[in-house]
């Protein structure tokens, strides 16, 4: 018996088959994680443990609710990256939140900015 969810996923995501990443942010997130691990700030195995935790949490929700996979892997990846960056004291949650706010409102921090 075939699993319709799997066929749907394969069909829906088929368009991405020729490229490794579905969006530029996925590529940046991957490269940041690999870059930090190559710089010795954490090992890839440490990052993988974090990623497994994120993926596992999402799997348990899917098993409970029977929801299908929309290809959220890199969203788990980004959460895992943010967590390890905090836990290794590479950057704090506050610093990251502040930077997100700063980039979201360039007009407020850059007097020369015009729309």
């Amino acid at each position: 018996m075939s699993d319709a969810r799997f066929r749907e996923l394969a069909a829906a995501l088929g368009r991405d088959e020729s490229s490794v990443f579905s969006a530029p942010w996925e590529a940046r997130a991957f490269a940041i994680a690999l870059g930090l691990s190559e710089a010795g700030l954490f090992t890839w195995d440490e990052f993988r443990a974090q990623l497994i935790a994120e993926v596992g949490a999402s799997d348990r929700i899917r098993e409970r609710d029977g929801t299908s996979d929309q290809g959220e892997y890199y969203q788990h990846f980004v959460r895992a990256l943010e967590t390890i960056v905090r836990e290794k004291n590479i950057a704090s949650g506050a610093e990251l939140a502040a930077k997100i706010a700063e980039l979201a409102a360039p007009a407020a921090t850059n007097p020369n900015h015009r729309d």
């Binding site: 969006a23 530029p24 942010w25 940046r28 997130a29 940041i32 930090l36 890199y74 969203q75 980004v78 990256l81 943010e82 960056v85 590479i90 950057a91 610093e95 990251l96 930077k99 997100i100 700063e102 980039l103 979201a104």
Partner: peptide
Amino acid sequence: GPAARVKALEQLL
């Protein structure tokens, strides 16, 4: 969204 968070993280690092 993840795009904004990744951009901020890259910038910060």
